[in-house]
């Protein structure tokens, strides 16, 4: 049972727990969903969770490096989304569905 100080004093722990909860939701999405596009969205969710903890650490240690890492993560995420969506479009053109099971045809 959370004490009242847990509710009223926002510390680094709160941001870390929020970040981990979001990360776990994203991971559940990646494992459980079958739609490629939803899986990609869940990946974005996980990356966002990591960003929250980066920014929280950056604030509580007064260090700007964490924000730089978030920059890099955002760039990678945008690139990943572009490639992932291109793959999804290619799969959709072929099979008229974006279920993850069709990706095994990528073996060639």
């Amino acid at each position: 049972m959370p004490s009242s100080s847990f509710l009223t004093d926002i510390s680094l722990n709160h941001y870390l727990i929020l970040s981990s909860v979001l990360f776990v939701i994203g991971m559940a999405g990646v494992l459980l969903r079958r739609n490629v596009i939803v899986i990609l969205m869940s990946l974005e969710l996980m990356l966002n969770a990591v960003n929250i903890s980066f920014i929280a650490f950056s604030k509580f240690t007064q260090n700007v490096d964490g924000q730089i890492m978030v920059f890099f993560v955002m760039t990678i995420a945008a690139a990943e989304a572009a490639v992932g969506l291109a793959l999804a479009v290619a799969i959709f053109k072929r099979f008229k569905e974006v279920n993850i099971k069709f990706f095994e045809h990528l073996r060639g």
Binding site: Y15, L18, I37, L40, M41, E44, N48, N51, I52, I55, A56, S58, K59, Q67, V70, F71, M74, A77, A78, A81, A82, L85, A88, V89
Partner: peptide, 29 residues
Amino acid sequence: IFITLNAYFIAGVQLIVYAGAVMVLFVMV
């Protein structure tokens, strides 16, 4: 949340890149 953590610029970039571009791409596809 980024704004509450005093990372104003990153918050703006998050809005522009993620909410403004990446997610619109997803919705459009």
